[in-house]
């Protein structure tokens, strides 16, 4: 269980992650909002990063430059990713 409750947007983004990455046996509440999504924490890999980029585009109309240095920040945690969605969504 997460230490802090998820906001509505964070829950929405968490469900997008679970659905897009076909995470087995994981619910939105299992994703700690401040924990790293990649490597440690949730343990996602580089293919997941590409898959998430596609999901962001489909769900929220956000296009990320695949080489951009700030992607690392955007993908750091569920909270960071949700902040990106809040700022740039065009759906």
């Amino acid at each position: 269980m997460a230490d802090t409750p998820l906001t509505e947007l964070e829950r929405d983004v968490a469900n997008m992650i679970i659905e897009a990455l076909e995470l087995e046996d994981i619910t939105a509440d299992d994703i700690e909002p401040e924990a790293p999504l990649f490597g440690e924490g949730l343990g996602l890999d580089s293919i997941d990063a590409l898959e998430l980029g596609l999901a962001l585009q489909k769900r929220y109309g956000i296009r990320l430059d695949s080489d951009a240095e700030e992607n690392r920040e955007h993908f750091a945690s569920l909270r960071q990713l949700s902040a990106l969605v809040a700022e740039r969504r065009s759906d």
């Binding site: 293919i47 997941d48 898959e51 596609l54």
Partner: peptide, 9 residues
């Protein structure tokens, strides 16, 4: 539509 990178892989 764009391809799923994971499925492509």
């Amino acid at each position: 539509e764009p391809l799923s990178p994971a499925r492509f892989g």
